[in-house]
């Protein structure tokens, strides 16, 4: 199955890099969609079929958590797996993400292999719980 992926990040280089890593990971991608903040992401979500949303936490106008809260208000959007990408890793913040329905989080800085393992786990392509938090020493050319 090919997945449509929405990347939400206010940083143009970061969106490009995440896209490149996802492509290089061999993950079966249908289409990529991009948005620079939560408001723009809602526009995309209201018009396109999205299977997975990779969402930066720290964005202007509508941050990642506010976007997830907005998605939760809509029956057709609240089941889309949302993964938070964040520099912040405090226990309280992570609990806050999970309480709002975020399925998982990716902490920056990340390696390509970490993204690959997370996506595979989230989309049910591996059942190995250990791989979910594997730091990924494997050589990965992207």
């Amino acid at each position: 199955m090919a997945y449509n992926i929405l990347i939400v990040d206010d940083s143009t280089p970061m969106r490009a890099v995440i896209k490149k890593i996802v492509k290089a990971s061999g993950f079966n991608v249908g289409q990529f969609f991009e948005a620079i903040n939560g408001l723009e992401a809602m526009e995309v979500l209201n018009h396109e079929w999205i299977d997975l949303a990779l969402i930066d936490y720290n964005m202007p106008d509508m941050n990642g958590l506010e976007l997830v809260e907005e998605m939760n208000k809509h029956d057709d959007l609240n089941s889309i797996p949302a993964v938070m990408i964040t520099t912040e890793g405090s226990k309280e913040r992570v609990e806050q993400f999970m309480a709002k329905g975020v399925i998982d989080y990716i902490k920056k800085p990340f390696t390509p292999e970490q993204i690959k393992q997370k996506l595979k786990y989230i989309m049910g392509e591996t059942e190995d719980e250990e791989q979910r938090y594997d730091n990924g020493d494997e050589e990965f050319d992207f």
Partner: peptide, 8 residues
């Protein structure tokens, strides 16, 4: 990234 990671 550097500041978020510094505080963590």
């Amino acid at each position: 990234m550097i500041m978020g990671n510094t505080f963590s």
